[in-house]
């Protein structure tokens, strides 16, 4: 169906201009390399639940460099990505943990309004504790290399 709507998108992942700007994305979209989050989910991260935010960041940064070198190994063909396992306490879990901690005095965007969204306060962006899903659809209106794009609108 989308091929009829966007014939220009059909071969976009082989377009040399797309490949020069985003070679890895093109391979992930085709399914021949793993998405980055799968790599981060396979790196174990051992953080102290009682630890300070600063300590969480230290573990995060160490695990992130491990994830980066693993990605380089996979991308150069040195490792089969089917061997990626799913760690119960991974770098991705740690990111989710830190993300939540940042909502307590929110500094996710550069307005840094500091509202306590965990308590339900609304930030300057009008977002509080919860993310609701406003809509989701297969987006056909974007750049050819990203179409069709499963678009989820949070609010």
């Amino acid at each position: 169906m989308w091929r009829l709507l966007r014939p220009d998108a059909v071969d976009a992942l082989d377009d040399p201009r797309v490949l020069s700007a985003m070679p890895r994305y093109a391979r992930v979209a085709k399914g021949t390399l793993p998405a980055r989050f799968l790599i981060s989910r396979s790196i174990s991260a051992d953080w102290d639940p009682q630890g300070s935010l600063e300590e969480l960041w230290q573990v995060h940064n160490r695990s992130l460099s491990e994830a980066e070198s693993l990605m380089r190994r996979i991308d150069s063909g040195g490792m089969d990505s089917r061997e990626l396992n799913r760690e119960p306490r991974s770098l991705l879990h740690l990111k989710a943990r830190i993300g939540e901690a940042l909502m307590e005095s929110c500094v996710l965007c550069e307005r840094r309004c500091g509202k306590n969204r965990l308590n339900g306060e609304l930030g300057l962006c009008r977002v509080g504790r919860e993310t609701k899903i406003h809509s989701c659809f297969d987006h056909m209106g974007e750049e050819p290399e990203v179409v069709p794009s499963f678009t989820v609108c949070g609010s």
């Binding site: 979209a29 996710l108 993310t131 974007e142 499963f150 989820v152």
Partner: peptide
Amino acid sequence: CRNQNWVGGDPIPHIPFWL
């Protein structure tokens, strides 16, 4: 679909949810 596309408004305040 070729990807998951997070939009908001802007997805920035929703990063913890997406993770």
